[in-house]
């Protein structure tokens, strides 16, 4: 059954950046878009097990730090080789300066 978990404060993530969030043995990435919206995806690249938190956010794309594969973090869509498999995304909610993620 899914549950909402507090991931971080809104101030913890700079605009056009991401941070890593670990919970119950899983790793997630929390994004802050240039428009001020928040998004969440799986924390590791689908190409190889590399944490995306060391990658680069450009607009609505996140680039993996190892092989430069890119995803649209709003939809999880794989946008640039070598990534071929989409990234899983998670619902997110912002309340009272905190970011909550709905995890399975």
């Amino acid at each position: 059954m899914s549950q909402w978990i507090r991931a971080c404060a809104t101030d913890d993530v700079d605009e056009e950046d991401l941070i890593r969030f670990d919970h119950a043995g899983e790793t997630y990435a929390i994004y802050h878009s240039p428009e001020g919206d928040f998004f969440a995806t799986a924390g590791k690249c689908t190409h190889e097990d590399v944490h995306l938190c060391d990658g680069l956010v450009m607009g609505h794309l996140v680039e993996c730090p190892k092989h430069n594969g890119q995803f649209d973090y709003r939809t999880g869509e794989a946008k640039r080789a070598p990534v071929c498999v989409n990234l899983r995304t998670y619902p997110i909610r912002v309340e009272a300066g905190a970011v909550f993620i709905e995890v399975p």
């Binding site: 190409h47 190889e48 190892k66 092989h67 080789a81 070598p82």
Partner: peptide, 9 residues
């Protein structure tokens, strides 16, 4: 493109 990805892995 793929061989170079492996070179980095």
């Amino acid at each position: 493109r793929w061989s170079h990805a492996r070179h980095h892995t």
